[in-house]
Design a protein around this nucleic acid. Structure first.
Lengths: 107, 107
DNA sequence: ATTTAACATCGTAATATTGCAATAATACAA
DNA sequence: TTGTATTATTGCAATATTACGATGTTAAAT
């Protein structure tokens, strides 16, 4: 096997897991942190900053983008990757509501 | 490759990614949610509830436990898995501080 | 001491992820 | 159009993860 059995879980559970997966790799966390610190940044900056190959960074950016976390504007020949703050806060609040509804009542 | 280059990131970044990884599989999210709803539960309950093999559940429980999220008490021949609420809230707050310090200032 | 019940661990197969080099695609500049 | 710079995509190789059956382990019951 090796594949997650996605269909046996509720949508809510799958959503939490999908969101968490975005943050489950340090490169993506670093990229998000870096993007949020810059006024404008292009992929090559990220490559220099993080220390992975350009292809690898591009791949991680795709994962971040698929989660709706990027707002890109085209500026000349280079892309401006920006954090989609609304979406970011949406993920935060989905996560927090999971945390808040998960309480222990034994031990 | 296939292995994450953990050593090129800060401790904070690796910590976020490590925490997120715990929640990045729906089975673990479901297990956490289930544990928090029960007054006492043992592994076999979880197996029935989630629909994965006992060995698989046990494996996921190990990941959850390694994150410090379980408080287990032994009751006779069966284990009582409980959520470590303090640790759970600690993870929530680490996550939230990451979210809160990550803001966009372009676009 | 045996059996039974509940979980853990091991071994293994299947799939996913990570990372990079090479190559494509795109947009601007000359 | 040709070149150049920037990012995406493709095609691997290496490692990680997921899942399960089989087998251990442990503790209570008989």
């Amino acid at each position: 096997m090796g594949a997650s059995k996605v269909d046996i879980y509720s949508n809510e559970i799958n959503e939490i897991a999908t969101i968490a997966k975005v943050f489950s790799h340090p490169a993506r966390v670093a990229i998000l942190q870096y993007i949020s610190k810059q006024e404008a940044c292009i992929c090559n900056d990220i490559v220099d900053e993080i220390g992975l190959a350009q292809a690898t960074i591009s791949q991680h950016l795709k994962v971040i983008n698929d989660a709706g976390l990027l707002d890109g504007t085209f500026e000349g020949k280079s892309l401006c990757y920006c954090l989609n703050v609304n979406r970011f806060q949406e993920l935060q609040s989905i996560f927090n509501s999971f945390f808040n509804q998960t309480k222990s009542n034994c031990c």
